[in-house]
C-alpha cells in the first residue's frame, strides 16, 4: 500500500512537471492564437480550473471577452510571473521592478488600463487585478471631486433632484 501511494504521488509529480512544460493555446476574440506555457496560463484561475477539470487543453481556450492587444499584454504579465522563479530576494526585486514598469506603461493609456483590468477580472489573475485596481485607486488619491471627475472623464450628475432621491430613499427605508 505504502509503495503504491508513493508511486501514485511520484506519478502525479511527474505529470505536474510535465504539465509545467505543456503549451496551451489562448485565442482572442479576434481569432488570434497565443501559445503560452501552462505555468504562465495557470496565473489565471479561470484557465487553471478549466485545465484541472480536464478541459480541452489540446484544442486551446477561446477567450471571447478579450481582444488581441489586451491578451498580448496580459500574457506578458503571466509569462513574467508564471515562468520565472521568485524565491530569492533578487528574484522578487526583479519581479517587483517588472510590475512597476508594467503598470507605469499601462497608466499612460487609461482606456487600455481598463481593458487589462477587465481581462484580469474575467481571467481571475489575482496579482494583475490587484496591480491595475491599485493603480486606478491611486489616481483618486489626493484629488478633489472636481479633479476626480476630470481625471476619469466623469460627467457631473449630482443635482438637487439627487438630494431629493436620498431623502426619498430615506423615507422608504
Amino acid at each position: 500500500m505504502a509503495t503504491g501511494s508513493g508511486a501514485a504521488a511520484a506519478a502525479a509529480d511527474a505529470e505536474e512537471k510535465e504539465s509545467g512544460s505543456r503549451m496551451i493555446t489562448l485565442t482572442s476574440n479576434e481569432g488570434k492564437a497565443f501559445v503560452v506555457t501552462e505555468a504562465s496560463a495557470r496565473q489565471s484561475a479561470t484557465i487553471r480550473s478549466m485545465v484541472d477539470d480536464g478541459g480541452c487543453v489540446d484544442k486551446g481556450f477561446p477567450l471571447p471577452n478579450v481582444d488581441s492587444k489586451t491578451l498580448a499584454r496580459v500574457i506578458q504579465y503571466c509569462d513574467e510571473h508564471g515562468n520565472k522563479e521568485a524565491h530569492t530576494v533578487d528574484e522578487r526585486a526583479a519581479l517587483a521592478k517588472f510590475d512597476k514598469d508594467f503598470i507605469a506603461e499601462l497608466d499612460a493609456d487609461k482606456a487600455f488600463l481598463y481593458d487589462v483590468t477587465m481581462a484580469a477580472n474575467y481571467l481571475h489573475i489575482q496579482g494583475l487585478f490587484a496591480l491595475t485596481t491599485q493603480c486606478i485607486a491611486d489616481t483618486i488619491k489626493g484629488k478633489t471631486p472636481e479633479e476626480i471627475r476630470t481625471a476619469f472623464g466623469i460627467e457631473y450628475d449630482l443635482t438637487a433632484q439627487d438630494e431629493e432621491e436620498i431623502k426619498e430613499e430615506d423615507t422608504h427605508a
Partner: peptide, 15 residues
C-alpha cells in the same frame, strides 16, 4: 471599455 464608467460595479467596488 473606454472610461471607468464602463467598468462594472463589482470591479469599481474593488477599485
Amino acid at each position: 471599455v473606454v472610461t471607468v464608467q464602463d467598468v462594472p460595479d463589482h470591479v469599481l467596488e474593488m477599485i
